[in-house]
Design a protein around this nucleic acid. Sequence first.
DNA 1: AAATGTTTGTTTGCCCGTTCACAAACAGCG
DNA 2: CGCTGTTTGTGAACGGGCAAACAAACATTT
Lengths: 216, 216
Amino acid sequence: MLKAREQVSKATIRRIPLYYRAVQQLQQQGVSRIRSDKLSEIVHIPSATIRRDFSSFGELGKSGYGYEVTTLVDAFGKLLDVHSKEAIILVGVGGLGTALMQNNFRRNPDLNITMAFDTDPAKLGVVAGIPVYSFATLAAHLTPAMHTAILAVPSASQPAVIHALEAAGIDAILTFAPKPVACAPQTTIRYIDLTSELQSLLFTAHQKVGHGAIVR
Amino acid sequence: MLKAREQVSKATIRRIPLYYRAVQQLQQQGVSRIRSDKLSEIVHIPSATIRRDFSSFGELGKSGYGYEVTTLVDAFGKLLDVHSKEAIILVGVGGLGTALMQNNFRRNPDLNITMAFDTDPAKLGVVAGIPVYSFATLAAHLTPAMHTAILAVPSASQPAVIHALEAAGIDAILTFAPKPVACAPQTTIRYIDLTSELQSLLFTAHQKVGHGAIVR
DNA sequence: AAATGTTTGTTTGCCCGTTCACAAACAGCG
DNA sequence: CGCTGTTTGTGAACGGGCAAACAAACATTT
Ligand SMILES: NC(=O)c1ccc[n+]([C@@H]2O[C@H](COP(=O)([O-])OP(=O)(O)OC[C@H]3O[C@@H](n4cnc5c(N)ncnc54)[C@H](O)[C@@H]3O)[C@@H](O)[C@H]2O)c1
Ligand SMILES: NC(=O)c1ccc[n+]([C@@H]2O[C@H](COP(=O)([O-])OP(=O)(O)OC[C@H]3O[C@@H](n4cnc5c(N)ncnc54)[C@H](O)[C@@H]3O)[C@@H](O)[C@H]2O)c1
C-alpha cells in the first residue's frame, strides 16, 4: 500500500519517472516480477538506492522474492497521477515549440499539449493537430483545470509571459529560456538550460583524466 | 589568477555557465564592477555560494570593493574554453534536431554545430546552412579534433549510435533520448529527459502545499 | 596616515542524499 | 512443517554541498 504523505526527497522524485518507464517496459515484455539488483542494471541506479526509494512509498516488495511488476506500475502510475490527463499549454511556436508539438509526449497518454499560443500572427492556425491561438487571447482560452505550461519563447519575452500565465492560473512551468524570473510563491518553475548543459558537459569532459561518467 | 587545477565541485561546475552569462551581460551593459550580493539578485544564487564558487578559481575579487567584471568574464571564459571553438556534430535531424540546428547556440560563438547525420535519405542536404550527411559516412567526415556530439535520435537507435560515435572518437555526448546506455569509461554522457522533467515537475507542483520554488 | 565602513574568502556546522551492511521476512523445497 | 537460500527494508556511517558568520583585507574618507 502507499504510505501516507510523508516526506519524499527531491532526489527520489526525480527518479520516479525513470522507474515508471522501466517497469512499464518490463510489463510490456511480459516480465511479472523483478529484483532490485536486476532493475539496477536496467536503470543504472544502485540497487540500495532503488530499495530506499521504493520503501518511501510503502512496502512494495517481498523479501526473498522481489517486486511484483504490476504492483510497481500501479504505485508509480498513481504517484504520477497518470490517469488524470494533464492538459498542457505551450507558449512560443518556434523551432523548439514546433518540435514539442509534433512529438507531444506521444508515448505518455497522460501528457498532452492541448493548445499553443504565439504573438506572431504568421504562427497562428493548427500545428500537428493542435490549435495555435494569439497570445493576447490566453485568458479567454484557458479553463480552470489547466495548471501547466511549457515555454519556448525568447529569453527577453519570458518575464512578461510568466507574469501573464500566473495571472491566468498556471502554477507549473517548464521553460527553455534560461533567464531567471522571480515568480509567485505558489508557482514552480523548472528551467531546461540547454546551453548550460552543453557547456558544463564540455567542462567535465575536458577536465576528466580518470574514468567515464554518466551525468544526470 | 586562476588556481592550479584543484578540485572543482560538480555543483559549482553546473553554475559556471550561469555566472558566465550573467557577467557577460553586465559587461555589455557597461557595468565595470559587481558585488556578490548584487550578483546574487541577478542569478538567484545565494551570495555565500557565489563567493565560495568564485574562490575555488583563485582570488578573483577585492575585499571592500567587489569583483571587476572583466576579471570574471576572462576567468570564466578561460574555464569554459570559450576561445577554442568546439566543433559539435548532431545526429538525428528530426523535429528536435532541426530546431537545434536553426538555433545553433547562436548567442555563444564558441559552440557550433558544424555537421549533422541522419539515416533517412530524405533528410540529407543542408539545413540552416549546416550540411547533413548519411550516418553511414560518419567516420569519413569526422576529424580527430571532434569530441562532442548531440543526439536527437529515437531511443531504440541510441545504443547503436553511441557505439558508432565512440568508435569514431567522440567522448562527450548530450542526448535527448532517455534510454540508459552503458558507455566506454572515457565517455561522458549527459541525458536531457524532457518527459521525466515534466513528470517530476508535475509531481512537485501537485504535492506542494507550502511555498513556491524554482527547481533546477 | 589613521579611522571607518564595506566586502571578500574561509571556517564551521548542518542537512540531505547515497552507500554499506545486516537482521528480519519471505519463497522454495525437501 | 522445518530448513535453506535469497532479497527486502532500514539503521548507521559517510560524503558532498549549502548557509551562516566572522576575521582579514581592502577602499574610502577625514
Ligand atoms: N532551439 C534551440 O536549440 C535552443 C537552444 C538553447 C536555448 N533555446 C531557447 O529556447 C527558446 C525557444 O527557442 P526557439 O529556437 O524555439 O526560438 P524561436 O525564435 O524559433 O521561437 C520563439 C517563438 O516565440 C514566439 N514569441 C516571442 N515572443 C512571444 C511572446 N511574448 N508570447 C508568445 N510567443 C512569443 C515567437 O513568435 C517565436 O515563434 C529560446 O528562449 C531559446 O533561447 C533554444
Ligand atoms: N521532440 C520532443 O518533444 C521530445 C520529447 C521528449 C523526448 N524526445 C526525444 O528526443 C529524440 C528526438 O526527438 P524528435 O522529435 O526529433 O524525433 P524525430 O522522430 O522527429 O527525429 C528522429 C530523427 O532521427 C533519425 N534517425 C533514426 N535512427 C537514426 C540512426 N540510427 N542514426 C541517425 N539518425 C537516425 C530519423 O531519421 C529522424 O530524422 C527522441 O529520442 C525523442 O524520444 C523528444
